[in-house]
Measured scan of single mutants.
Amino acid sequence: MVVWDEDGFQGRRHEFTAECPSVLELGFETVRSLKVLSGAWVGFEHAGFQGQQYILERGEYPSWDAWGGNTAYPAERLTSFRP
């Protein structure tokens, strides 16, 4: 999975191949867009795999509404991930 700290695949970029309990440890404040290259990941609103969670299947997510636009409580950012 590849993530960016700005919408539209802009800004700082990082690629994950294993779980990440906090993007803050990588110098990111948040993740605002992402691409899942294969498989599925779970993205969490807060560090430590806490808060609202989203199943992220293979594909592109250019902004928060692409992963959470249909929920009652959409998270505008993700800060931890698990494959």
Score class of each variant (00 low, 15 high):
Met1Phe: 14
Met1Thr: 01
Met1Ala: 01
Val2Lys: 01
Val2Thr: 05
Val2Ser: 04
Val2Asp: 01
Val2Pro: 00
Val3Arg: 03
Val3Glu: 02
Trp4Phe: 15
Trp4His: 01
Glu6Thr: 04
Glu6Lys: 08
Glu6Asp: 05
Glu6Gln: 12
Asp7Tyr: 07
Asp7Glu: 15
Asp7Trp: 05
Asp7Ala: 15
Gly8His: 15
Gly8Cys: 09
Gly8Ser: 11
Phe9Glu: 02
Phe9Thr: 00
Phe9Asp: 00
Gln10Asn: 10
Gln10Met: 06
Gln10Lys: 15
Gln10Leu: 04
Gln10Val: 05
Gly11Ser: 03
Gly11Leu: 00
Gly11Trp: 01
Gly11Val: 02
Arg12Thr: 09
Arg13Ala: 07
Arg13Asp: 04
Arg13Ile: 05
Arg13Trp: 08
His14Val: 12
Glu15Pro: 00
Glu15Trp: 08
Glu15Cys: 13
Phe16Tyr: 04
Phe16Met: 11
Phe16Trp: 03
Phe16Leu: 12
Phe16Lys: 01
Thr17Val: 13
Thr17Phe: 09
Ala18Glu: 05
Ala18Leu: 11
Glu19Val: 04
Cys20Tyr: 01
Cys20Phe: 01
Pro21Gln: 12
Pro21Thr: 14
Ser22Thr: 14
Val23Phe: 00
Val23His: 00
Val23Leu: 07
Val23Lys: 00
Val23Glu: 06
Leu24Thr: 09
Leu26Ile: 15
Gly27Asp: 06
Gly27Asn: 13
Phe28Val: 10
Thr30Cys: 06
Val31Pro: 03
Val31Ser: 01
Val31Trp: 03
Arg32His: 03
Arg32Lys: 14
Arg32Asn: 03
Arg32Pro: 01
Ser33Gly: 00
Ser33Gln: 01
Ser33Val: 00
Ser33Asp: 01
Ser33Thr: 03
Leu34Gln: 03
Lys35Pro: 01
Lys35Met: 05
Val36Glu: 03
Val36Thr: 02
Leu37Gln: 07
Gly39Asp: 07
Ala40Gly: 10
Ala40Cys: 14
Ala40Glu: 13
Ala40Ser: 12
Ala40Val: 14
Trp41Arg: 01
Trp41Glu: 01
Trp41Asp: 05
Trp41Leu: 01
Trp41Phe: 09
Val42Arg: 05
Val42Lys: 03
Gly43Ala: 14
Gly43Cys: 11
Gly43Thr: 03
Phe44Pro: 01
Phe44Trp: 09
Glu45Pro: 05
Glu45Leu: 00
Glu45Asp: 03
His46Phe: 12
His46Gly: 12
His46Ala: 11
His46Val: 06
Ala47Met: 06
Ala47Lys: 11
Gly48Lys: 10
Gly48Phe: 05
Gly48Pro: 02
Gly48Leu: 07
Gln50Val: 14
Gly51Lys: 11
Gln52Met: 13
Gln52Asp: 12
Gln53Tyr: 03
Gln53Ile: 07
Tyr54Pro: 00
Ile55Leu: 11
Ile55Ser: 13
Leu56Pro: 00
Leu56Trp: 03
Leu56Gly: 01
Leu56His: 03
Leu56Ile: 08
Leu56Thr: 01
Glu57Pro: 13
Glu57Asn: 10
Glu57Gly: 11
Arg58Gly: 10
Gly59Met: 03
Gly59Glu: 03
Gly59Gln: 04
Glu60Pro: 04
Ser63Leu: 05
Ser63Asp: 11
Ser63Lys: 11
Trp64Phe: 09
Trp64Asp: 04
Asp65Leu: 10
Asp65Ser: 15
Ala66Trp: 10
Gly68Leu: 11
Gly68Ala: 09
Gly68Gln: 13
Gly69Leu: 11
Gly69Tyr: 12
Asn70Ile: 08
Thr71Cys: 13
Thr71Asp: 13
Thr71His: 08
Thr71Met: 11
Thr71Lys: 12
Ala72Thr: 14
Ala72Val: 11
Pro74Ser: 12
Pro74Tyr: 09
Ala75Ile: 11
Ala75Tyr: 15
Glu76Ile: 13
Leu78Asp: 03
Leu78Gly: 03
Thr79Gly: 11
